[in-house]
Design a protein around this nucleic acid. Sequence first.
DNA 1: TCGAAAATGACGCATTTGCGCTATTGAAGA
DNA 2: TCTTCAATAGCGCAAATGCGTCATTTTCGA
Lengths: 216, 216
Amino acid sequence: MPVKRKNIRVVLVEDHPTYREIVSEVIESAKGFALSAVFENVNDALEKIPAADVVLMDIGLPQRSGIEGVTELKKRPDPPRIIMLTNFTDDEKIMQAIIAGADGYLLKQTSGQKILEAIEETMNGGTSMTPFVARRVLEAFKSRTEVFDPTVESISLREQEVLGLLVQGLNYKQIAEKIFISPETVRNHIRNIYEKLHVHSRSEAVSKAIKQGLVK
Amino acid sequence: MPVKRKNIRVVLVEDHPTYREIVSEVIESAKGFALSAVFENVNDALEKIPAADVVLMDIGLPQRSGIEGVTELKKRPDPPRIIMLTNFTDDEKIMQAIIAGADGYLLKQTSGQKILEAIEETMNGGTSMTPFVARRVLEAFKSRTEVFDPTVESISLREQEVLGLLVQGLNYKQIAEKIFISPETVRNHIRNIYEKLHVHSRSEAVSKAIKQGLVK
DNA sequence: TCGAAAATGACGCATTTGCGCTATTGAAGA
DNA sequence: TCTTCAATAGCGCAAATGCGTCATTTTCGA
């Protein structure tokens, strides 16, 4: 017998009437998808949003931006996956959306079929990005990353903690206060971190920590 | 009259015979695509590669890895666009490929249709990533990025130069030697950079520079 | 249970850094 | 032409940093 799979519950937040209609139509007529609700602004969406699997969110909305919408929704328990569906192609908006927690970023030129695929892939834990956006992200990512250094030794948990604070720009004393140990101990941890990373200064350590992904 | 568009010239580098056949077949039978050459290892490919638009590159090849292949090809003048087509799902390999200069990253489970789409999108300057990979990249990217700070003032060219060296871990004296100015002047530049970034230490500056994308 | 890490804490000291203050030169705009 | 600003250079000083050396306690796997 065929497995009865639940429809993917989709919510759309879009102010432009025509485009809203088009996308609504795409979702509603697609098998396996259910359009749970449609909102034309973020406030309404935040107030009335029903249980949903995936939210399609415009960015350029009146009043509150879709970026804020993402930020707010992602604060909630068991948040939906959110795909930005927008015309913004500038790095700033793309980065802001990603940092806010968006799980995908499609440009409005995307075909209905692709939108449906993106929703499915997002449901499965993947990320969908328009190739143009993916390109931008990759470029930005590259400038923040350096080739993996296999000689870096593994950092202990405590050391990771200290390294994290170092990356935040705290000095010995501030770190000491933050984690309730003596500044002398902080010095020791940092000393050990330097050895493991093969660096000799704060700036080197910070740079390497970020670019090697050693801090969350 | 219809515009006569040239076929996209594709090169495949793949050691596994069966998969090689499958992908070859996909490319050859597709309209608008031409399979220019197929290689089963990186050395052959580097030696004999013909003019090509897009290269599909496996990672797990005998002898030299596909990552090396990317690195080498991208060093050449007018390099092709390169899409990784592989089974590796670990962050390490993904990151290495990206840093090496890969323009896309597809898992081998990708359908023929998707591969063709990816090639086209890559030709158009976009980046194609399997949703799973895109997700990984996005995660890694987020940990290296912070919300855009609009209060950061624009850094002059010279300052950018200094900031770059700061990020590389050099101290005043080393920077001074590198760009042939007095250490005192370096101090002044850094002082100004701190003001513009609103930070008060090297580590803060380095962190902010990287996470805000202020250095290339 | 024994030893190796990990985490903690400390002292000294030469360097480096962050910042206040000042000053000159050249280029770009008003 | 006058002014602003970037780039250059310098001095002084308190604070922070990097590193050598040493020591105690805890934890955890062999």
